[in-house]
Amino acid sequence: MERFIEDALSEWMKGEGPDSDIVISSRIRLARNLTNYPFPMLATNQQSEQVLGKVSDVIHAEDLKMLSHFERIPLSEINELESKVLVEKHLISPNLAEESRNGAVILSENESISIMINEEDHIRIQCLFPGFQINEAYELANQIDDIFEEKLNYAFDEKRGYLTSCPTNVGTGIRASVMLHLPALVLTQQINRILTAVSQVGLAVRGLYGEGSESLGNLFQISNQITLGQSESEIIHNLYSVVKQIIEHERSARAKMLTESRTFLIDRVNRSYGTLSYAAIMDSKEAAQRLSDVRLGIDLELISNVSANVLNELMIMTQPGFLQQYAGKKLSTNERDVTRADMIRERITT
């Protein structure tokens, strides 16, 4: 339990995935509900307690144990700061952290599997993989889904599919998403054109932390919008082929910049590296931008003395919840900016 909160980088993130110079992670989320219980929004305390119990019991299923050791963390047993850290690691949703009643999360040892209970739906199965492995993530999520279905009674309708609290998830209940680092497309101002095109083929684009926030550090999350009337494989294939094209565009933009504006690039990534190495005050927005520059520098082999893993780690560790966990107390915005700079200096220069 402590490890989930203290380590910034989930075990799964330390692995290399395909196309990991551009794709940070691939994620599948399946929304499922139990029949005979109201959705969490309308469930009484007693009902949501029963749902929690039933879903938690599946943790003892032999098939599940064969995949990994799992640990269950009820949200009531951790404090606000700790749940914030889990949000920043993408292991739980802000919604589960802030609004759930009898909410809990079941985490696998390497944190690549997280199963949320009593979020907007009774069950949300999530699988996270490093790099571009959306098919692999679906296979695992599908396997877990089968194990849960064997032990529980899912709300399923022949016509509408898996029934969910929100009509935007009904049908397959699937949300497939890919987190991309697209600095060259942003720098060459091609990003808006591409993102507009993406949204026209039924996919959604979001900033780093999901709904509502602007993109920080050139990170974009692309996911499917449609969950009904298409099969899981169609949905994933559609996302896969669009992302594949974006990766190609980003690669060629990087290659072009490297030949046409090499000096500009070297100047930019090293300035950011210098700032991160020496600054004493760093707000989250600047940190995100500078870390993005350095990451680009590493990917293009312009910077060699920092590892990509340190960058991944810092992207998580410089978020407010983690900083405060690290400091061991609540911090004001100004204090956070100082702690953030300290932490970055420490990690990036060793």
Binding site: N142, D145, D146, E149, E150, N153, Y154, F156, D157, E158, K159, R160, G161, Y162, P167, T168, V170, G171, T172, I174, G202, I226, T227, L228, G229, Q230, S231, E232, I235
Partner: peptide, 19 residues
């Protein structure tokens, strides 16, 4: 559902036990 998804009928996965 047609406005949200362009469709109103499920064609994806069917649960093994109940389906």
């Amino acid at each position: 559902l047609k406005r949200v998804h362009g469709n109103s009928v499920h064609v994806g996965k069917i649960p093994i036990k109940s389906g």
